[in-house]
Design a protein around this nucleic acid. Structure first.
Lengths: 119, 119
DNA sequence: ACCTTTGTTCGTGTTTTTACGAACAAGCAA
DNA sequence: TTGCTTGTTCGTAAAAACACGAACAAAGGT
């Protein structure tokens, strides 16, 4: 990479890509799923249920914090994590909109029937 | 990375992450958006509308082909690209399901009100 | 006092992603 | 023929992502 070209795209595309990127690893999906299911703040012991070390897990959590999907709470010396409702809703809207925008009609590509597939 | 740990996660999580990863770059989002809007097979001249070289663009297109979202057609010596309806629908389902699964109730996190935010 | 758990930071190493130029073959146009 | 566009492959290089061990501080338990 000679330079980070990501900045040169439309702001909307960048924002969408940022959220998609945050979800682009199974560990992060599992963390979010866990938090959404239990609705209980994350404690360190979940690292047992992951095939990763505490350090690596911490790295993924930090990434989710960076995009704002997870917030950390301090209580009695322990650090609890939970999902940020506002950010989760924001993400849901942004990604849903994109997925809807690129929806295709059922008869799409019928005009390509005459073409020969190369893949 | 000592080893690729991605394989150690649940198959469902891996599948979801694969699609999210495919959408994790603004260039790829723009390509998909363009194809969905025009519904016309992609010709080389779109590289003018991107802040990237033909080579890099080709790389992103190849990635989208690898996950099956884009298919290539041969016609009169030119290579046309278009979205794969079936795969797009599959992706829509898979990602929509995930986004729904992690939806939170409006009163979520109210029990955390007593906590002090650290981020 | 000692040990354990917890959360984090630092440093390191590997893999993957991103990006480009050079080069090439195929097709078309002058 | 020559020149141009098009699509691709190759090699290269830098950045980012991924993963871990070591080490540390703070808190809790025995």
């Amino acid at each position: 990479m000679v330079a980070a070209k990501t900045d040169l795209f439309e702001k909307e595309l960048q924002e969408q890509a940022t959220f998609f990127k945050a979800l682009a690893h199974p560990a992060r999906l599992q963390i979010i799923k866990y938090l959404a299911e239990t609705r209980i703040c994350l404690t360190g012991d979940i690292s047992d249920t992951f095939p990763l070390t505490r350090t690596t897990l911490n790295q993924h959590i930090r990434e989710l914090k960076n995009v704002g999907l997870i917030v950390g709470h301090e209580k009695e010396g322990k650090t609890y994590c939970c999902l940020n409702l506002e950010k989760m809703n924001e993400m849901y809207s942004i990604l849903s909109i994109f997925l809807s925008e690129v929806q295709l009609p059922e008869n799409f590509c019928c005009e390509c029937g005459e073409f020969k597939y190369t893949y």
